[in-house]
Design a protein around this nucleic acid. Structure first.
Lengths: 228, 228
DNA sequence: TCATTATTGCGTAATATATACACAAAAGTA
DNA sequence: TACTTTTGTGTATATATTACGCAATAATGA
């Protein structure tokens, strides 16, 4: 059996952040290749002795200096043989979330030019990356409804209106403040910090924290997170 | 940039069928390689100019002679560098369903030895295929709850008790016959054929058919299939 | 052929969940 | 100190889910 392959294996990362009531995607400016005028998802070829997830983490570090808060495999793009005009490349796309602190990109890495783009202002994208982003948005939209991953898009301590805004932005429909609060608090997975935050005018808001261990405990007892 | 790769790309298929109130998985006996004494998932290396899904279909045809009724990408296994003791192999696993007619495997293809195994009687498996199957079961379990893929495991014309049994088997808990029927019929995605089936003793049962176009129409109007 | 057994088909009441909706409290601002 | 902004809270209604028993139809065997 011959193990030589003419297929190159790459990974790409779709990193989402949340700022200004908008979802943001992290893009880089390719230094080389056929798409130097376009922006692209961070990513690159997998090394022979490197796990896929490790490859994503490495590329993200190298190209953007970012360490993500949530990372999961999204989909492997390899049905279209000419995705990359140079050679056959199959790409395993990963889906990542970061909290707002990561929005300021450090320039002190050997990072390529990297920037955040709001979803509704995406530039021309390289390869099939617009399709990949679409798939990632779908995943985010559906997963945020049955897994508590939204908290990874917020600061550790957050205010109810932020959580609510986040869900409205991602799901694309209004949410009743009272019912939302009632439901989420009813889960018993948030801890009051006792602190308040006062942003401009208006009554100061209670700061909450997502309680991972409580969530895990409830989950193992059959609790099922769900927000529609 | 150098495109040579030492990573081989494979596809594997987890094909489920439903028989004797049990889920069955399709396995093959490897002709070569380090696992000739074990059974393995059908699959093989992807050709340079072949889409991933095409590769799965080809391998399934070659190794088992089967054409599946439902096929979707499951997960790409590539975090463990030594999954295959011979060389680095990343495998894109696909998840497939077939109806009961396909349970009789044709011997007239150039198929390797292929057999159906009930999930609770799986033999020793090659590579990390037991893990892959576990992931596939999880997917089936969750997906059958929000997509009408269960019908792909039944004959075109089926009886309510079969559908109910299928769900009980996969979800692993009892279902109230009346509530189940009420709910599913309420969806409006089944068509009565007008025919009946009498299996042994007992009152003959109405034969139904899954109405794909009705489902699509409802879906586009916001209908959301869900069975817990 | 008639009683028995097995399986299907069906409705209603009780409970739980989701939705709709308005006003007071706490801060900043003019 | 009046006005604006934002947060925090409860109740009534509608909807969905669950629990539950009995008659109809066929095969089987005494």
């Amino acid at each position: 059996m011959n193990f030589e392959s003419n297929i190159s294996l790459a990974v790409d990362a779709i990193v989402f952040a949340y700022a200004n009531s908008k979802l943001q995607v992290l893009l880089i400016q390719p230094k080389s290749g056929p798409f130097q005028n376009n922006w692209a998802l961070p990513g690159g070829f997998v090394k022979t002795n490197e796990g896929l997830k490790d490859a994503v983490r490495r590329e993200l570090q190298e190209e953007t200096g970012i360490q993500v808060d949530y990372l999961e495999q999204l989909y492997t793009f390899g049905d279209q043989v000419d995705r990359d005009p140079r050679t056959r490349v199959v790409s395993v796309a990963y889906f990542a979330l970061v909290n707002p602190k990561k929005l300021v990109l450090k320039a002190d890495t050997d990072a390529a030019k990297a920037e955040w783009f709001p979803l509704d202002e995406l530039p021309q994208l390289a390869y099939d990356h617009n399709i990949i982003i679409k798939v990632a948005i779908d995943r985010l939209k559906s997963k945020i409804q049955y897994q508590p991953i939204g908290f990874d898009l917020l600061n550790k301590e957050f205010v109810f209106s932020e959580l609510e805004q986040l869900y409205m932005t991602i799901l694309g429909h209004d949410i009743d403040r009272r019912n939302f609060r009632k439901k989420v608090l009813g889960f018993g997975i948030l801890t009051e910090t006792g602190k308040f935050r006062s942003e401009g005018s208006g009554r100061p808001a209670k700061l909450y924290r997502f309680n991972v261990s409580k969530y895990r405990a409830l989950e193992s007892k059959g609790f099922h997170f769900e927000i529609k």
